[in-house]
C-alpha cells in the first residue's frame, strides 16, 4: 500500500517536472527580453547588462532552470547586499514586473477562480445529471428530444460566444445582471454571487451539455444490464432501482469527467475569465504570457498542472469507493 502511494506521488512529481521543463524551454526560446523592461528609458547596453545580471538571466539556460528548482526546495535570493530580494521556500520565482513573489500573486487570484469553477460545477452537476437521468427514463418523449437537442447545441457552442451573447442579452439589452468584475465574498456575499451569476450559468450550460449526453447514454446502457433486471425482478421499487443501483453505475464515468473538468477549470478558465473580466488565475497566466513574465508563467502552469494531477488522483480514489472491483489496482 505504502509503495503504491509512493509510486503514485513519484509519478505526479515527474509529470510536474516535465510540465515545468517544457514551459521553461518554450518560453526561454521566445524572442523577448524581460531585462529590457527593467532597463528604463533611455536604455543603454550597460544598463541592460546590469538588469540581466540582477534578474539572474546572464547564466546559461540549464543553470537558470536548476536555479528555479533549487529555489522551490530551498528559497532564493536575487541580487546581493542591502538591496537583495529574498524569496522564501517554496519559491516559485519572483515576478520583477509586479515586484512580488509568484506564490503571493497566485494566492491572490485563487479565490476568484475557485468561486467561478466550484459554483459552476455545482450547477452543472445538478442539472447535467438530473436532466440526463430524466431524459433516459423518458426515452423517446418530447422532453428527451428537447434535452438532447439542447445538449448538442451546448456542446457545439464555444464559451466566449455564449458568454458574449449572455452579456449582450441579459447585460445590455435587458440590463438585469452585471456584466463583469468581481467582488470578494468577504466584502459582500450577495454582490459576490450576483456578479458571478452570468459566468456560472454560461459555464454550467456548456458543461451540463456533456453531462446530459453522458449520463443519458450510460443510464440507458445500465438499465439494460442483468443486475438491474434482477433487482426489478426482486420487486424493488423503481425509484430504488434507479436511485441506488443504476445511478451508482452511471456515476463512475461522471466522476472521471468531473475530475478532468474541474482540474482544468481550477487552474484558470482563460477565456471565460477574459470574457467576464474576472481577475482570476487564467487572466494572470495570459497576462504573464503576453508580458513574458517567465517566473509567473512557470508558477501558473505548475499550479494548473498540480491541480490536474491531484484531480486525477482523487478520481482514482473515488473509483475505489464507488466501484469495489477497481480497488487496489
Amino acid at each position: 500500500m505504502l509503495r503504491l502511494i509512493a509510486q503514485r506521488i513519484g509519478g505526479m512529481l515527474l509529470v510536474l517536472l516535465i510540465v515545468a521543463f517544457c514551459t521553461f524551454a518554450v518560453f526561454y526560446l521566445v524572442p523577448s527580453d524581460p531585462a529590457q523592461l527593467a532597463c528604463g528609458r533611455p536604455c543603454t547596453e550597460q544598463n541592460l547588462a546590469l538588469a540581466r545580471e540582477f534578474m539572474g538571466m546572464d547564466s546559461p539556460w540549464w543553470r537558470q532552470f536548476t536555479d528555479f528548482l533549487v529555489g522551490v526546495a530551498a528559497g532564493r535570493t536575487f541580487g546581493s547586499g542591502a538591496t537583495a530580494i529574498h524569496c522564501a521556500a517554496p519559491c516559485f520565482g519572483y515576478s520583477f514586473q509586479q515586484n512580488t513573489d509568484v506564490v503571493t500573486l497566485i494566492a491572490e487570484r485563487v479565490p476568484v477562480t475557485f468561486s467561478l469553477a466550484i459554483g459552476a460545477a455545482v450547477l452543472w452537476l445538478v442539472f447535467g445529471i438530473g436532466l440526463g437521468v430524466l431524459a433516459a427514463l423518458r426515452r423517446g418523449t418530447a422532453f428527451d428530444r428537447i434535452a438532447l437537442a439542447a445538449s448538442v447545441a451546448g456542446v457545439s457552442a464555444p464559451v466566449y460566444l455564449v458568454g458574449l451573447l449572455g452579456i449582450l442579452v441579459f447585460g445590455f439589452t435587458l440590463d438585469v445582471v452585471p456584466v463583469g468584475g468581481y467582488v470578494p465574498f468577504s466584502e459582500s456575499p450577495v454582490d459576490w454571487a450576483w456578479r458571478l451569476v452570468m459566468p456560472w450559468i454560461v459555464l454550467a450550460f456548456l458543461h451540463a451539455a456533456f453531462y446530459v449526453r453522458l449520463v443519458r447514454s450510460q443510464m440507458l446502457e445500465t438499465l439494460n444490464e442483468d443486475f438491474i433486471r434482477t433487482a426489478r425482478a426482486k420487486g424493488l421499487s423503481e425509484s430504488k432501482v434507479v436511485g441506488k443501483h443504476a445511478l451508482r453505475n452511471v456515476l463512475l464515468p461522471v466522476v472521471t469527467l468531473v475530475g478532468i473538468d474541474l482540474g482544468g477549470l481550477l487552474g484558470g478558465a482563460v477565456i471565460t475569465e477574459s470574457v467576464f473580466s474576472l481577475p482570476g488565475l487564467g487572466g494572470l497566466l495570459i497576462n504573464a504570457v503576453h508580458s513574458r513574465d517567465l517566473p509567473l508563467v512557470l508558477g501558473c502552469t505548475l499550479f494548473a498542472g498540480f491541480l490536474v494531477v491531484v484531480a486525477n488522483a482523487l478520481v482514482d480514489l473515488c473509483y475505489g469507493v464507488l466501484d469495489p472491483r477497481a480497488r487496489l489496482t
Binding site: 514551459t23 518554450v26 526560446l29 482563460v270 497566466l285 501558473c300 494548473a304
Partner: peptide, 22 residues
C-alpha cells in the same frame, strides 16, 4: 499511456500561444 496522461494534464492553450510566438 503515461504520455497521454501527461498531455491531457498540460495547459496546452498556453503552449500553443507560446509556440506560435516562438
Amino acid at each position: 499511456t503515461w504520455a497521454v496522461d501527461v498531455f491531457l494534464g498540460f495547459p496546452y492553450l498556453v503552449f500553443m500561444i507560446a509556440i506560435s510566438m516562438v
